[in-house]
Design a binder for these strands. Structure first.
Lengths: 158, 158
DNA sequence: ATCATTGCAAAGTTTTTGCACCTGC
DNA sequence: GCAGGTGCAAAAACTTTGCAATGAT
């Protein structure tokens, strides 16, 4: 799971007139070691468990800041909680999309067809961007459905 | 914006052991005439303006029920409010994806490349579904970026 | 030294729940 | 008639804001 790129953040923040502080470093570090869809709560308690006493407010503010600066992606799988993950470059090998179980909220990252998807996306992005005069920065692709566990449970019930 | 299909809902609900009531009918009717990403608040006040006194709780419960039964799609563009729209069939001419402005929240529906997207999606769905043993019901594709208005505003500021 | 950042407590939003009453089938 | 649906009020869940203290450059 090594999502490197530890350096560079400092620079990215600096360029936006922001300081690199302990809490910010710790939060980014945590996200980089857990390359997946974390909620504010997830992060807050995970850090608390590692004896890092960072306020909930700071977590919220840090994450929002990172989103504004394109370092993180924010999305919602339908449970009303915002989720954050490193904004992997479209071409990076860590880039992925999500399969979301609408029963239990399980999220599966996949990048099986990423290449084909990306190819189409790039084309679509370019043309939509021109047609609607819209600067496209990012995309979200989510498949919603029922995971194998929930399907099993459902069979048992019926 | 005639999104027909007014009949059939009753049947769909019945099949799920649910009754078709006045509030449900009015809410579905409203959604079918406003084929786009409405929040609970949007719906609640729109109906209030038409002198339909439907409780906020009922709106929440009705929408959630429709989502559970596949009649509506639920998604979040990043502003923390759930949005709902009719779950157009993948092949229907009303099927579309979204362009979301991350500055002002503007949502543009597009279906320019829908055919190509759908073709790829179907393939991806089939294979992901087998590989991850996941029953895929639906998908969300969102491009995030900056709309022309916000881009203009930004230029003026700088 | 200066201005951004932090953390707490308080407030704001959005969504859910409990419960008595009402309604569709 | 009865299970399911409704609406109100209250609570819960998530997020933002104000402000005094602290920290980074």
């Amino acid at each position: 799971m090594g999502c490197k790129k530890h350096l560079g953040w400092r620079g990215m923040l600096k360029k936006c007139g922001c300081k690199m502080t302990k809490p910010r470093e710790i939060i980014l570090e945590h996200l980089s070691k857990n390359c997946k869809h974390l909620t504010v709560e997830d992060i807050y308690f995970a850090l608390k468990n590692k004896s890092h006493d960072i306020g909930l407010t700071t977590v919220y503010r840090t994450l929002e800041l990172m989103v504004q600066n394109g370092i993180l992606n924010k999305f919602d799988i339908g449970d009303g909680k915002s989720r954050y993950e490193l904004a992997f470059e479209t071409n990076s090998k860590d880039h992925h999309h999500h399969l979301v179980c609408c029963k239990c909220g399980l999220i599966i990252n996949y990048n099986d067809f990423i290449d084909e998807e990306i190819q189409l996306l790039k084309k679509v992005e370019k043309e939509l961007s021109e047609k609607h005069n819209f600067k496209i920065l990012n995309h979200i692709i989510q498949f919603q459905g029922v995971c194998s566990n929930c399907a099993k449970k459902n069979e048992e019930t019926n």
